[in-house]
Computed example of a mutant assay.
Amino acid sequence: MPTVFRYKGVRFHFFSNEGNPREPVHIHASCANGEAKFWLDPNVHVASSAGFDRRTLSELLLVVEGRRDEIVRAWNEYFG
């Protein structure tokens, strides 16, 4: 599971088997308190979540939006 970055104890990562061309670019966020999946196209939005409260999920969404280019670059480098 390649880690792209960490933010306030939340790990943002991909699963190694997700490079399927049919699945759009996305990132997972996980920590002891919850997990979420964010789609990046056509705009950043929550695909699924469990355990994060609304405020935290909103904060994580802003983080993903702000680091979208970095995530896309890491996806393309990893999955080529």
Rank of each mutant, 00 (worst) to 15 (best):
P42E: 09
P42I: 06
P42K: 03
P42F: 05
P42Q: 01
N43L: 04
N43W: 11
N43A: 15
V44E: 01
H45V: 09
H45E: 08
H45M: 08
H45T: 03
V46D: 04
V46E: 12
V46A: 01
A47G: 13
A47Y: 08
A47N: 12
A47P: 00
A47H: 10
S48Y: 06
S48N: 07
S48Q: 02
S49K: 12
S49A: 07
S49W: 13
S49V: 04
S49Q: 15
A50K: 14
A50M: 02
A50W: 02
A50G: 04
A50H: 09
G51L: 11
F52P: 01
F52D: 09
F52C: 10
D53P: 08
D53Q: 07
D53H: 15
R54M: 07
R55Q: 08
R55M: 05
R55N: 14
R55H: 10
T56R: 14
L57R: 11
L57H: 05
L57P: 08
L57D: 04
S58R: 13
S58T: 11
S58G: 14
S58H: 13
S58P: 00
E59N: 08
E59L: 06
L60N: 01
L61S: 11
L61T: 13
L61C: 10
L62V: 00
L62G: 07
L62R: 11
V63A: 06
V63E: 09
V64A: 04
V64E: 03
V64N: 00
V64I: 12
E65C: 02
E65W: 00
E65Y: 01
E65M: 05
G66P: 02
R67T: 10
R67S: 00
R67Y: 07
R67W: 12
R67H: 15
R67Q: 15
R68E: 07
R68D: 05
D69G: 14
D69L: 12
D69S: 09
D69P: 09
D69Q: 10
D69H: 13
E70A: 14
E70S: 12
E70G: 11
I71Q: 08
I71E: 08
I71M: 01
I71A: 03
I71R: 06
I71H: 03
V72A: 02
V72D: 04
V72C: 03
R73T: 13
R73G: 01
A74F: 00
A74E: 15
W75T: 03
W75R: 03
W75H: 06
W75E: 08
W75Y: 06
W75I: 08
W75F: 02
W75L: 10
N76E: 15
N76H: 15
N76G: 03
E77G: 00
E77N: 09
E77H: 11
E77Q: 11
Y78G: 05
Y78C: 06
